[in-house]
Each structure stands twice: as C-alpha cells, then as structure tokens.
C-alpha cells in the first residue's frame, strides 16, 4: 500500500504539467497563466445604477465615461474638464459630494490615473471620480493637474502626497513641499519605473 501511494504521488509530481493532470483543473487554472485574465465582477445594486444614470446626466457637458468597480460607480472625465466636473459633483443639489475621502494615484505605465474617492454625507452616495494624466519617460509629469484643494480643502495633503510619490504637479496648490519623503529625496518612488531594489542611499 505504501509503495502504491508513494508511486502515485511521484507520478503526480512528474505529470504536473501533463495534459491529463491539467484537464482536471482546467476551467479555473487556464486563465491564470494565459493571456486572458478574468475580470472583476460587476455587482452594482439598484441605487448604484440610479446614481450612474444621474451622474452621467449631470456631467453630460464634461464628456464623462461611466464604469463600474465591483459595487461602486466610477466616472472618468478628460483632465481639462476635471475642475469643472468636480464643481458639479460638489455643488449639484442632486449629488452633493461634500466629503473628499481620498486621492489614489495609480501608475499604469503609459499614463497616471488620479482617482478621487468622493462621498456624499447627505445622500450616502460613493463615487470614484477619475482622470488620466500622461507622463514622460523621466518620471516627471508633463501635464499639470488643477488642484482641487479649493473645492475640497481635505485634498491638501493627499495632493502633496501624490506629488511626493508620483511627481504629479498640482497647479494652484500653495505648498508642494515633500510630505512623506525628506527634502533631498530624488525620484518618485510610487512610480513603477522607480529602481526600488537598487536604491541604496538610505
């Protein structure tokens, strides 16, 4: 018996990449190494769909692109419409996104994406308000992003952090001093291109 079991375990080890073994776990195993990747589920509830329609209507002038992130509504606007669209989101009586939760900057290698996570305390709406900024090879941003600090004062430190780690320059922000990093630090460690492992000056 013992021999048998050891043999079988050996054979499974050897046959690990054989098609017979692969077929067994094929349905879920196939996409993980192949080029096609599973996409996140979209589970927007009725209120979320209502909000999506509402935001698309109210922002119609600013070329919004609507999307869904699992259970939240996302809306993307061109960078030149960012400020105007933000004002609509805050001041529109049907939306009232009065609470600035967070600014997430994501480096997608070809461009940077700014994600403003907004919340409406009045209606309980949550939204991901996005915009794309191109950046040059050197890591410094070319496009200037308008600061939303005047619209949501809470954006102050979040923008400084984004400038610190990703090199996004926010025009109209009174203080772009480093926040998390020290003054002499060079480079933008948030970027995917930052030589993370080779960096030795610490």
């Amino acid at each position: 018996m013992e021999q048998d079991s050891s043999q079988s375990s050996e054979s499974t080890n050897k046959d690990n990449e054989a098609p017979t073994q692969g077929e067994e776990i094929a349905p879920s195993a196939a996409p993980r190494r192949g080029p096609q990747v599973q996409l996140a589920p979209e589970m927007l509830d009725q209120a979320g769909e209502g909000l999506s329609v509402l935001v698309a209507g109210e922002l119609a002038m600013h070329d919004p692109v609507m999307g869904v992130a699992v259970d939240q509504v996302e809306v993307e606007v061109p960078i030149q419409n960012l400020e105007a669209a933000a004002l609509v989101l805050r001041d529109n009586m049907k939306l009232r996104f009065n609470y600035f939760r967070c600014l997430a900057t994501v480096d997608y290698q070809e461009y940077l994406e700014l994600v403003y996570l907004l919340y409406s305390t009045e209606y309980g709406y949550q939204i991901m308000f996005k915009s794309r900024v191109p950046y040059t090879e050197g890591g410094s941003s070319t496009a200037t992003v308008p600061s939303l600090r005047k619209i949501w004062p809470a954006a102050d430190w979040h923008e400084r952090e984004s400038h610190d780690l990703f090199g996004v320059f926010f025009s109209g922000h009174p203080n772009m001093e480093p926040l998390l990093l020290y003054d002499e630090f060079e480079g933008f460690p948030g970027l995917k291109s930052f030589p993370f492992n080779e960096y030795e000056d610490w």
Binding site: V37, Q38, L39, A40, P41, A69, V70, Q72, E74, R101, C102, A104, V115, L117, Q126, M128
Partner: peptide, 20 residues
C-alpha cells in the same frame, strides 16, 4: 483576484480606513 479595481472601507477605532 480577477483584474479590476475595488474600494473597501471599515470603521476603525480612528475612523474610516479605506483600501483602494
């Protein structure tokens, strides 16, 4: 996890901790 973005948050002792 599948490809995509998600935001989750919870009430921490110090407030609303979120993860994007």
């Amino acid at each position: 996890p599948p490809k995509g973005v998600v935001f989750a948050h919870a009430e921490n002792p110090r407030g609303d901790l979120g993860v994007y």
